[in-house]
Design a protein around this nucleic acid. Structure first.
Lengths: 189, 189
DNA sequence: CCATGATACTCAATAAAGTGACTAATCACA
DNA sequence: TGTGATTAGTCACTTTATTGAGTATCATGG
């Protein structure tokens, strides 16, 4: 049950409404976890009941009212506890890998199509993360920021997200190229 | 619902018992998905009921009897359908990333400890995957195998698993180094 | 002035994944 | 001779995640 901790971690640096949080989790801005709006709303409700976050109503004229949430001291303590005990390894769980695993037994064109789509998706994410990193570090160089920046947690997770998508893109392109080559080699025989 | 497809993909190249399948999924040999034994047994039962796999009883003297499963034609057709339609992107979902996201607000020593543990875990997986790849390609070079090998699906997914873990290891080491540096810089002030 | 889309949520239901406890045999080792 | 590890599973239960449908207001564009 790490969604609760992901929510806490996301709320550490800014006070957010459930809606804003949902956008962040959906966009991949919160590249360290993924969740749908409904989960976040219910998680926020649980966290508030347990006193790990507090919400305050913000009355808006032009928009529906919203509730902004921030992490309480108890919430930070819970994250502290989490940081001290967690150890579950991460596993890739990816439809595309399942498809490629079966590549020798299914239509190669389809596999290549999926790989190409994913490479394009990865490219979009790479640009998104790249821009995000630049925005976070401002006019400082990456090295400078990592040495002396105030909050580097979000920067580090974003770096991992970027590298992950670069790995995805490279692998997708390479795999697609190999499958294409084998296809033509096969056809010429 | 891709576990069903992951199971089908895993059974394409060899006939396996639920137990063997569970070991494969647990070990990360099936590095494209992760599941617990109970899930696999129940998934196999469902797949058999739907005619996508068939099991045959193997009576053993020295060991408890087992049921070996293989994919039927309908099963391959299902994978074909899956390969032609799937498109769900993969998201990282990782406790460690949540911890690092909160790095600026929790005990740095603990975060460094988690990163170090994960780097060691990644190293172990890298060796495992490296050995697996060598075993699959035998005495052929990687390029030669990818060009002319019979079944490259499992090889490609294993390559992705390897690159993923290398990315993990590198990021963990770099992040831990940065946090250590900041800690000493801070202490000296 | 009417459709579309963004903001800001809620509720209900199902599907998937994970946890814990169990049976039962054989093998390896001390 | 009995302790633990390995093979080969099953059953029941809970927690998470996903799907789908609603509610309500306001802003923008044609």
């Amino acid at each position: 049950m790490a969604l609760r901790h992901a929510v806490l971690a996301a709320l550490l640096d800014e006070e957010l409404s459930g809606y804003q949080l949902a956008k962040a989790f959906d966009m991949g801005v919160a590249n360290f976890w993924h969740a749908l709006p409904q989960q976040l709303y219910s998680e926020l409700a649980k966290l508030e009941k347990q006193g790990l976050v507090t919400g305050r109503e913000v009355v808006q004229d032009t928009r529906p009212n919203k509730r902004l949430f921030k992490v309480t001291e108890a919430g930070v303590a819970e994250l502290e506890r989490f940081a001290a005990t967690d150890n579950k390894p991460s596993f890739i769980r990816d439809d595309l890998l399942v498809t490629v695993q079966a590549a020798d037994h299914v239509d190669t064109e389809e596999v290549i199509a999926r790989l190409t789509e994913r490479a394009a998706f990865a490219d979009a994410k790479i640009e998104l993360f790249g821009g995000l990193l630049r925005r976070i570090r401002g006019d400082r160089s990456e090295e400078e920021f990592l040495r002396h920046g105030e909050r580097i947690g979000p920067y580090l997770t974003c770096m991992r997200g970027l590298a992950f998508e670069q790995g995805n893109r490279d692998w997708c392109r390479q795999s697609a190229a190999i499958l294409r080559e084998r296809r033509t080699a096969h056809a010429q025989r």
